[in-house]
Amino acid sequence: MNSTYTAIYSARFENLDRVRDFVAELAEKCGLEPAAVYAVQLAVDEAFTNIIEHAYGGESEEKIECACQIEKDALVITLRDCGKPFDPTAVPEPDFEADLEDREVGGLGLYFIHQLMDEVQFIFVDQPETGKTCNLLRMVKRKEK
């Protein structure tokens, strides 16, 4: 049977510790290897940070919901915010060949998320009651076979 666990945080960097601990506990419960548990924590940290910085334009009391679903062979994490719609195609890939002086760190968070997780999906959901569009980021980490 699948079980879902949900936590809601305000869009503040001080909550990164809490959301990382929340997903780590469930990743362990799901039976992921320690390296995969760390990968999940890092991916969720980067995603949570991106939501604060880009969707909400900085720290605020706006909410970020984190839902984790433990499946037989995977952990499915969904982060939901109702900030600015996020267009992942607008983020350039990091340039790994650039000299030190030209090295930029923007876009690294999104690159990490794609590298660390097995499946990454951005979904936009209209909220007719508020007239807002919310962002869903769905990430899957599979157990090693």
Binding site: Y38, L42, D45, T49, V105, L108, G109, F112
Partner: peptide, 16 residues
């Protein structure tokens, strides 16, 4: 115990 890209950004900035 943990470092995100926010930490990497500090490292690279100081290295520059």
């Amino acid at each position: 115990e943990f470092m995100s890209s926010a930490g990497l950004r500090v490292l690279i900035g100081t290295q520059k």
